[in-house]
Write a protein that binds this DNA or RNA. Structure first.
Length: 426
RNA sequence: GCGAUCGUGGCGAAGUGGUUAACGCACCGGAUUGUGGUUCCGGCACGCGUGGGUUCAAGUCCCACCGGUCGCCCCA
């Protein structure tokens, strides 16, 4: 029997989960400040949602989905990304009808893609993402980008690179697409196999190809920026002006292409330039997707969002040597000697816990000295010593592990005493 | 899906065909009876990813599978 976690999945254990909680709390706080509310959607959806939403020609849909048939003969798929589900929920629950628009949502949760695992790429991974639905104001594009950047920066990341581009509206994209096809068509035989396919399916992606990046035709390829119509051009300019005013640095990369079909206008990626980060440098990506809500059966509604990988975020923190300010101390540890004292310690431990104090005790019948060792290992701030003498006098010997000083405290005073010292000291 | 590389106790790591699988960390116990983080002593793999095969003999050689890592593709 194979008792290992499936390929591309991992257990997050104590010592690590604290970091996840910290990061999650940071982004939840950030969303609160930016006024984004949490949405929780199912982890699986009808397969069709992703085929329509993400796009039939994308790699994600073509070869990376965890699709299965349930007992009711429905084709379901473990979500490979978050936007399609959020938009579906937006439409289904008619959130467009709520008085406060745009609808600003965030989510946190596992995504699933069948890929060859490697550092920073798991088959199950966790994304944090936000979506703003119902506004076509360039300021909200800047807001989304600023939220992403703030999150990373507040966690301490410095080696960040924000890359932006505009994919234009559908008119601009069609014109650009035609231009690309006629540009690369004469060179078709010189391109790699993948690119020959891309020429028909999605010529935009040729610009992304690493194999053909040195081909002379790449240099002269028509840029989407040249094909933006006036409206798209103005929109992109407005986004950049907002970013400038906010003091958010960026570089424009005309070859930045996103892998999902629904994007248009603003597209962006945030990358880490930290040393030793490996081949995968993208921390997060996002963009505008006007038209997606309609595609999924809703009213005409513009939208923009982004998603980041928590795994990659933690990798970036590690690469930059950033320690999160985690609290790894235990308030109190009970050390009891003898049967009577052990029994009394059980009772007192419960009393303290009910009073809101963090306490633990030995459950392995360890020797006195070993109990102290446990307390030390758990970083206990105070050790509560209970033996025959103390039982006799109804007191507890409270030892401050930092200073080494001890104080005798009566049973009835214990709660208030500990509350006092824990509030005062660290 | 393709290429490369690796897989020994809780962790790190020796072992390069042949007696009881080094060593370090961690852990457990002890160094005269109730006070931790130091030191000293002792204990701790019936097993070398899994399954086959070669051999008198395999952790050590061969094959398959599983898994990790790195790169490609793609992406978060």
């Amino acid at each position: 029997m194979n008792m290992k976690a499936p390929r591309g999945t991992q257990d997050l254990l104590p010592g690590t989960t604290e970091k996840w909680q910290y990061v999650e709390a940071k982004f939840k706080d950030l969303c609160n400040r930016f006024n984004y509310s949490e949405i929780r959607t199912p982890i699986f959806e009808h397969t069709e949602l992703f085929q329509r939403g993400v796009g039939d020609t994308t790699d994600i849909v073509q070869k990376e989905m965890y699709t299965f048939t349930d007992r009711g003969d429905r084709s379901l798929t473990l979500r490979p990304e978050g936007t399609a589900s959020v938009v579906r929920a937006f439409v289904e629950n008619k959130l467009f009808g709520l008085p406060s628009q745009p609808t600003k949502l965030f989510y946190f949760g596992p995504m699933f893609r069948y890929e060859r695992p490697q550092q920073g790429r798991m088959r199950q991974f966790v994304q944090f993402g936000i979506e703003a639905l119902g506004s076509a104001d360039p300021a909200i594009d800047a807001e989304v980008i600023s939220l992403a950047m703030s999150g990373y920066q507040e966690l301490g990341l410095r080696s960040l690179k924000l890359v932006i581009n505009s994919l234009g509206d559908s008119e601009s994209r069609t014109n650009h697409r035609n231009a690309l096809i006629s540009h690369f068509e004469p060179h078709k035989e010189e391109l790699c196999g993948d690119c020959q396919l891309r020429l028909e399916k999605n010529p935009l992606r040729i610009l992304d190809c690493k194999k053909d990046s040195n081909h002379p035709a790449m240099e002269t390829a028509p840029s989407i920026l040249e094909y933006l119509n006036d409206e798209s051009k103005l929109y992109f300019e407005a986004v950049k002006i907002h970013l400038d005013q906010m003091g958010i640095a960026y570089v424009v990369d005309k070859n930045l292409v996103r892998g999902l079909d629904y994007y248009n206008h603003t597209a962006f990626e945030i990358m880490s330039e930290a040393e030793g980060f490996g081949a995968i440098t993208t921390l997060s990506g996002g963009g505008r997707y006007n038209g997606l809500v309609e595609d999924l059966g809703g009213p005409e509604t513009p939208g923009i969002g982004f998603a980041l990988s928590v795994e990659r975020l933690l990798m970036a923190l590690e690469a930059e040597g950033i320690e999160l300010p985690l609290n790894n101390k235990l308030d109190c540890y009970f050390v009891a000697l003898g049967e009577k004292a052990s029994s009394e310690a059980v009772r007192l431990t419960y009393e303290l816990r009910k009073a809101g104090i963090q306490v633990d005790k030995d459950y392995q019948d360890k020797k006195f000295k070993a109990q102290f060792k446990s307390a030390d290992r758990l970083n206990a701030k105070y050790v509560l010593v209970l033996g025959d003498d103390e039982i006799e006098n109804k007191i507890v010997n409270v030892k401050d592990m930092n200073s080494g000083e001890q104080e005798e405290v009566a049973f009835e005073q214990l709660v208030s005493y500990l509350q006092e010292v824990l509030r005062g000291g660290k």
